[in-house]
Design a protein around this nucleic acid. Sequence first.
DNA 1: TATCATCTTGAGACGGTTTATCAATTTCAA
DNA 2: TTGAAATTGATAAACCGTCTCAAGATGATA
Lengths: 143, 143
Amino acid sequence: MSKDLKEMEVLRQHLAKHQLKLTRQRELILTAFLRQEHVTAEVMYHQLAKKDPHLGLATIYRTLNLFCEAGMAQARHFGSQTQYDNISHKGHHDHLICTGCGTIVEFENCEIERLQEEVATKNGFVIQTHRLELYGLCSRCRH
Amino acid sequence: MSKDLKEMEVLRQHLAKHQLKLTRQRELILTAFLRQEHVTAEVMYHQLAKKDPHLGLATIYRTLNLFCEAGMAQARHFGSQTQYDNISHKGHHDHLICTGCGTIVEFENCEIERLQEEVATKNGFVIQTHRLELYGLCSRCRH
DNA sequence: TATCATCTTGAGACGGTTTATCAATTTCAA
DNA sequence: TTGAAATTGATAAACCGTCTCAAGATGATA
Ligand SMILES: [Mn+2]
Ligand SMILES: [Mn+2]
Ligand SMILES: [Zn+2]
Ligand SMILES: [Zn+2]
């Protein structure tokens, strides 16, 4: 709960810095967003329909994109729909995705990140972001 | 040129095995495809309009997907459009993408691949495929 | 070589996802 | 409290890729 407050403050700061306004919808969407690891706009739309039946899908897209700009979310394209990844109280991470059941496991590996930098340097690049996704079968789906 | 012939033979084999037919369009598209590393259907559509103004976009999509099934191409989603990666005479590889000019550099790094396996094993997964993309600025775009 | 079942093509309709539009509403600094 | 500026919700539009289907091409067979 205190974490929610902290993130609300992050949002507030971002809004202030960009002359944006804190609305009932933004608060509502943030609260719901912080409860999950990965979510699509469509899923949130249905989840929140119970709390506010008039909340529009466009508003959810707009707000999730706002969270991305504020550094609390990251858009990822695992399947056909954009997954908004909650990175607010964890840093960067990559994903293992089960092609059987769709389970997503998050992981971090400094050694891989270091080697990525090495590859980039060798090719004259300076990395801004990267994307690493490992697709395979989880232990359950192999049996 | 002899490489083109070799790939044409790969296509022929695939077609034979699946009761498909070798058409003028498939030959035309393969020849053009082998000339480039990465290409979108739309780009090929415009390139080939000169050689055959009646060649349809749907045919290009269908044919590039066919090349994927035959193991000569791999569909990748760098930006908004699907890039068809020519993997006919090179093995698996990953990519560095310049966010400034769009340049794509291919690379391979066994050590990263090994660490990926390690991560997967640690989480009970068996990897089928993976995707690693490094986004950043190339040396030219930094100046 | 002629036949013809089967596959392929091209044009455009269609579908799913995300963004743009815009009048009405809400926010918040003054 | 006021009002300029931002936001919202409804829905149209854009975008990309696939589907549909009648017309045409292919190639195994005789
Ligand atoms: Mn994640
Ligand atoms: Mn490539
Ligand atoms: Zn699984
Ligand atoms: Zn560049």
